[in-house]
Design a binder for these strands. Structure first.
Length: 833
RNA sequence: GGGCGCUUAGCUCAGCUGGCUAGAGCACCUCCCUUACAAGGAGGGGGUCGGGGGUUCGAGUCCCUCAGCGCCCACCA
């Protein structure tokens, strides 16, 4: 039984009350029996739980929720899981800081280990297993906080379908997918120069790079009679050649000859390559192995030797590169950081007279790991890659096949695909991640044979090769001659995140669910991770299923602070969301979020939240009024023309909102609905309230139209304001509004002859009457002696159909209608009593 | 250097396939404690729709161009 209309309706406490009832009733539970065609599945972005909760989460997750609620009301079985991204570097760092530990994989597991805590002066080294255990403990707490926030916000997530990116299911799927790629030749290891972060001591992928304008200086160095300019004089000992453009007349005669490097006196060839730019520096560059990615290209294409002098720790190694004397100038560099080495090289060059002039300061773009603080170096190492360069064409085609909202976001995808120049490096020399599930046989010489990886059986997954043992070996053979060694690397977090559709839909672990939910319908995400998360997810789905992972991608913008700056922890302008939800109410905050159009960055705006609260209150009060009107005792008469006009307009709004939602434009759907609602309250409600009070057949007709409108309005608002609409729905309807059918224009269509003019003209005259009273500084209740309306015959005819409602609403004694070409409304107030 | 987006009232933004005197919220001003709503309601002032050119009977809306802002990307000499 529906509850009665409360005497004094309130927004307070709706969140707790309804969140509990929805949970209890399973309102948002996914129907496991639904066929794929009846399902709408959403690849919810798993938030990084080691990051702080901020208002951006509320913003974008609300967008997705409105769409989920819309499709649920449209009768779809909505598969709306939640994931927590607790994998990878951010968690490692958080664990190190909050527990005072650091990972040392060489240590054995220590049962019952108690970490020192955040105040520890020196981090305690712990085994990988202990470290991972702490990561799990930490993330569980963080995940609880996120769930609490999202429940309070009213996300219609099915909370029984949670996954984590470090959980067993995700590890299994991630490892199995990797092994499949390995089987199919899409994944392979290479010993290759890769971009390397000397602080994190790991390789990084192209997608994780960013350029930063960095201060540097040109140093002009003399190689015999040729002068080159370089920003990296410290790499001089790693120089393997000079290079100029083949058409550059200045050096044409020198190609094929050789020169000696300054300080070290190593003989290097002078070569030609088209990437050399004649107008950069002196037009001729030194190639070092490796100073930048161009060096890598030159080294590869010109088939040059390697002279490496950058260690994984960012220091110059003790041993000199090939051809460089150990006891010469190099001895002064060994063991130094690159920065120290640079200073010393410059001094030595100045002393030897091989530097021309003074260094010339410049700023130039330098590549950094997006989470790193020092420029990336290039280090040759063994790494695992997923091949993508051989598939750019099909990946671009998939990008076009995907429906983007807004459409222009596709350009970022295509742009990225066009500029990709490296395969996807997925191995990371880190600890908290999904291990690459391989071992290598160790030869009698004690060296692992990387060409013959040992793989686990599928059923054994997930595994950790550092503790698990390959079939046919015993634990004591680990790292022994004739035994086996674990692959030490873990996969990058994107290598697992790129599988969220497979993880959420249960690929390889729940084939039935997978068949009902994949390919998914919607990937909602922010625009800054198109090149990473979206692109990599498309890659995995293409390689594994030869299909798109979803049909639609809805790209949300960012929340900007009032000064139009992106909110981020480092800027210290992050707003914590829970207090906002408590202050304004979840519906109000959702209202603000819903006003941010797809793809558009939106300013944090508490005024909009106040406005949202006002709207929610208005819905409460208007509903109370409509539902509190005396019930008709007899049969309803025919609807008045003004009722039909209202319903006709509402039908139009329903159609607009529906089309908008189908195109993921939730903001438009809200705007249309809200705009109608205020007119409904201000004009229609005022015009018909007297008739509705009056009872009888005419009153019953008004009541009927009011109820119908209210029912439709509550359903139109339900995706945005789930709490207040559910509250009002419960006063007079059975079941949840969130399980009610999305309205259709057919259900409200008043049929032919329901022109909008009746309402429009009546509301127009009522507006004039209000203005007259306002200007006369009298109460809106004041009586009006006479209103003269001059207008076209058509409009007057329409107005006449609403005459009694209008006169009652405006307290108008005489309403005079006169035909005229020049429309006007004259209001004569009654003299004060 | 390439690409994308934005530029409409003081502020934040709507204006979809071009069409009646350009809209909303906030802010500001005036009035009203009207039996749905005073943590309300009614009304008002305020914009040559970034500049210039073009297409059209008609352009905030389409085309060209210039400018400013923002974002994405780019092989660090």
């Amino acid at each position: 039984m529906p509850a009665a209309v409360p005497e004094k309706p309130s927004l307070d406490g709706l969140e707790q009350r309804w969140a509990a009832r929805w949970e209890e009733a399973g309102t948002y539970r996914f129907d496991r029996g639904a066929e794929r065609s009846e399902v709408f599945s959403i690849d919810t972005p798993p938030p990084t739980v080691s990051g702080s909760l901020h208002v951006g989460h509320v913003f974008s997750y609300t967008h997705t929720d409105t769409v989920a609620r819309f499709w649920r009301m449209r009768g779809k079985a909505v598969y709306y899981p939640m994931g927590w991204d607790d994998n990878g570097l951010p968690t490692e760092r958080r664990v190190q800081n909050s527990y005072g530990v650091h990972c040392d994989p060489s240590l054995p597991y220590e049962a019952g280990f108690t970490p020192p805590g955040p105040d520890a002066k020196h981090p305690v080294p712990v085994s990988r297993a202990n470290f991972v255990e702490l990561c799990h403990r930490r993330t569980e707490e963080d995940e609880g906080a996120f769930e609490q926030l999202f429940r309070h916000l009213g996300l219609s997530v099915d909370w029984s379908t949670i996954y984590t990116t470090i959980g067993e299911k995700a590890r299994r799927i991630s490892q199995l997918s990797f092994l499949r790629l390995l089987d199919q030749g899409h994944a392979e290891q290479r010993w290759a120069p890769t971009l390397w972060d000397v602080d994190f001591q790991t390789a990084v992928a192209q997608a994780e790079l960013e350029d930063r304008e960095t201060a540097g200086a040109y140093h002009r160095l003399r190689f015999d009679d040729i002068e080159i300019e370089t920003t990296r004089p410290e790499l001089l000992a790693a120089c393997v050649a000079l290079v100029a453009h083949p058409d550059d007349a200045r050096y044409a005669g020198r190609f094929g000859s050789s020169v000696r490097t300054p300080l070290f006196g190593v003989e290097v060839p002078v070569l030609a390559h088209e990437l050399a730019e004649p107008d950069k520096g002196s037009g001729i560059a030194m190639i070092c192995t490796f100073g930048d990615v161009t060096d890598v290209i030159w080294w590869r294409e010109l088939k040059l030797p390697v002279r490496s002098m950058v260690g994984r720790d960012g220091r110059v190694p003790a041993d000199p590169p090939d051809g460089v004397a150990a006891d010469g100038p190099f001895a002064e560099l060994a063991g130094k950081t690159l920065k120290q080495a640079r200073a010393r090289v410059i001094e030595m060059l100045a002393e030897s007279g091989e530097m021309v002039g003074e260094p010339r300061p410049i700023t130039h773009p330098v590549k950094y790991f997006e989470k790193g603080d020092r420029p990336l170096e290039i280090v040759t190492s063994r790494q695992w890659f997923i091949n993508v360069l051989d598939r750019i064409k099909v990946l671009k085609a998939r990008g076009s096949e995907l429906r983007w909202h807004p459409a222009y976001m596709e350009a970022r995808y295509q742009n990225w695909a066009d500029n990709l120049n490296a395969d996807w490096l997925i191995s990371r020399q880190r600890f908290f991640g999904v291990p690459i599930p391989l071992w290598y046989p160790v030869g009698e010489d004690g060296e692992p044979d990387y060409r013959q990886p040992l793989r686990p059986r599928d059923e054994a997954l997930p595994i950790d090769p550092s503790t698990d043992v390959p079939d046919g070996y015993s634990p004591d053979q680990r790292d022994q001659p004739g035994g086996f060694s674990a692959e030490p690397d873990v996969m990058d977090t994107w290598a697992t995140s790129s599988l969220t559709p497979q993880i959420a839909c249960g690929w390889s672990v729940d084939d039935d669910l997978f068949a009902r939910t994949f390919p998914m319908d919607l990937r909602p995400q922010a625009h800054d991770i198109i090149r990473t998360w979206l692109f990599s997810t498309v890659i995995r789905s293409e390689l594994q299923h030869q299909s798109l992972p979803w049909s639609d991608a809805a790209i949300s913008g960012w929340v900007l602070d009032p000064d139009r700056k992106k909110m981020s922890k480092s800027k210290g302008n992050v707003v914590t969301p829970l207090p906002l939800l408590e202050q304004y109410g979840s519906d109000a905050v959702r209202y603000w979020a819903s006003s941010g159009r797809p793809g558009t960055d939106t300013a944090f705006d508490e005024d909009q939240m106040r406005n949202g609260r006002k709207l929610a209150t208005k819905i409460l009060n208007a509903s109370k009024f409509v539902l509190g009107l005396p019930a008709a005792d007899g049969a309803a008469g025919a609807p008045a023309p003004i009722d039909l006009a209202l319903l006709a307009r509402l039908a139009g709004v329903v159609d607009e909102a529906t089309v908008a939602f189908e195109g993921y434009d939730y903001a438009r759907a809200l705007e249309r609905t809200e705009s109608f609602f205020w007119d409904f309250c201000n004009d229609y409600l005022e015009l018909v309230k007297n008739r509705a009070y009056g009872g009888g057949a005419d009153g019953a007709a008004a009541l009927h139209s009011l109820h119908r409108s209210l029912s439709v309005l509550l359903r139109l608002f339900a995706p945005f304001l789930p709490f207040v609409t559910e509250e009002v729905w419960s006063w007079w309807q059975e079941g949840s509004v969130h399980r009610a059918a999305w309205p259709t224009s057919g259900e409200v269509d008043a049929g032919a002859g329901a022109g909008p003019l009746v309402l429009e003209t009546a509301a127009g005259v009522l507006g004039h009457v209000r203005r007259a009273k306002s200007e006369a500084k009298v109460s809106q209740r004041a009586a009006v002696e006479r209103v003269v309306v001059r207008d076209s015959p058509e409009r007057l005819a329409a107005l006449r159909l609403a005459e009694s409602d209008l006169r009652a609403a405006g307290s108008i004694t005489a309403l005079v209608l006169e035909e005229a070409g020049d429309p006007s409304v004259a209001v004569t107030l009654a003299p004060p009593a």
